[in-house]
């Protein structure tokens, strides 16, 4: 019980960001194990086909990188992954295995855990070990509460929420890369990956963005919309709008936030020139932060905003955009 196993996640030839979260979290645990029981190491696992470059990258963050190459795992297939990973876990008996709480991990981890009779804590924002006991903190009730749980038994898996750990820094010395023969008998016949499809091709889906910058009637004229659109792109968010803007056909319906439009739950909802009629504000209740820019200090949007700027959008928005770009380029 000294090894922390981390499963690298990759898609379409790219290592996904969650992998770094997992490595950081894994490193913390390995360090703790070392402090508590003198032994602790971090092992990354990469499954797939032609994943040598991933192994190279991973070796900068782990003591060891295990590589299993197999055509059946070229694209993610939870059953193929499950077989390979179960084999490794049975063999190595790690203290805990960390997987991303992503579409990939959600498909893989539960069945893997069940097949190993392991304890599984999903969507963890913290994992801790104390005297050999692993505990995790995970959200409950839609994030309004948190629960801390103890993972029973000695086979443990945790899926980690993305963005819940700081980025790890690369090590001075690289870990070893170990190639392991595939335990798979061949193709998984009952589950076949066919292809990827991009749903946002064509129409934009504003509900998927973490940052939504919405423009309202205060914009006055459709020719002014680019002012707000530029702010949205400076923030890396999408442009949305309130009903009057759609009514005027200045923007397509797909961008409308409101009872009759889209309900959004972004991290940041920036409302520009939106007064905040109840039809509108009830659709942004799920936003983590609401910021409002409006010239009317009595605009109801300020009642739901976490931060507000009272002022003319035509001066505030360009100034804000400029400062954002400056802040971004400064880093």
């Amino acid at each position: 019980m000294k090894e922390i196993l981390v499963l690298a996640e990759h898609r379409k030839g790219e290592l996904r960001d969650i992998t770094l979260d997992l490595l950081a979290r894994g490193q913390q645990l390995a360090d703790k194990l070392r402090a508590q029981q003198a032994e602790g190491e971090l092992t990354a696992v990469v499954l797939g086909q032609d994943v040598g470059t991933f192994a190279d990258t991973l070796s900068s963050y782990a003591d060891r990188v295990l590589v299993v190459e197999e055509e059946a795992m070229r694209a993610f297939n939870s059953d193929a992954y499950q077989e390979a990973l179960a084999h490794l876990i049975k063999q190595r008996r790690p203290a805990i295995t960390l997987i991303g709480h992503t579409a990939f991990g959600i498909d893989l981890a539960p069945a893997l855990a069940t097949s190993l009779d392991a304890a599984l804590a999903t969507d963890c924002i913290e994992v801790d070990v104390e005297g050999g006991a692993f505990t995790a903190v995970r959200p409950a009730y839609g994030g309004k509460a948190r629960m801390s749980v103890l993972l029973r038994g000695d086979v443990r898996i945790a899926t980690i929420q993305s963005g819940s750990a700081p980025s790890p820094s690369p090590r001075a010395t690289r870990g070893e890369i170990v190639s392991i023969d595939s335990p798979l008998a061949g193709e998984i016949a009952y589950k076949k990956f066919l292809e990827y499809a991009d749903t946002s091709a064509g129409e934009i889906d504003i509900t998927q963005s973490d940052i939504v910058v919405a423009v309202g009637r205060g914009i006055g004229d459709p020719k002014n919309i680019p002012i707000v659109e530029d702010l949205a792109s400076a923030l890396g968010g999408v442009l949305a709008c309130s009903r009057p803007v759609v009514d005027k056909k200045w923007l397509p319906k797909a961008r409308q936030v409101g009872i009759s439009g889209k309900t959004v739950q972004p991290k940041l909802y920036l409302a520009v020139g939106i007064s905040g009629a109840f039809q509108h504000v009830s659709a942004i209740k799920g936003a983590n932060m609401v910021v409002a820019i409006n010239k009317d200090p009595k605009a109801p949007i300020f009642r739901v905003a976490d931060y507000g700027i009272v002022g003319d959008l035509f001066t505030v928005v360009p100034a804000l955009r400029e400062k954002i770009l400056k802040a971004k380029s400064g880093k």
Binding site: A113, A119, L120, R146, S148, R152, G153, R303, A305, G308
Partner: peptide
């Protein structure tokens, strides 16, 4: 397989601040 230890509500953030000052 999991043993619930504790359920708690994380501290809430303060809402609603109008930023004062020039643009």
């Amino acid at each position: 397989r999991l043993e619930m230890q504790r359920l708690f509500v994380p501290p809430a953030t303060q809402k609603g601040e109008i930023l004062e000052g020039s643009v």
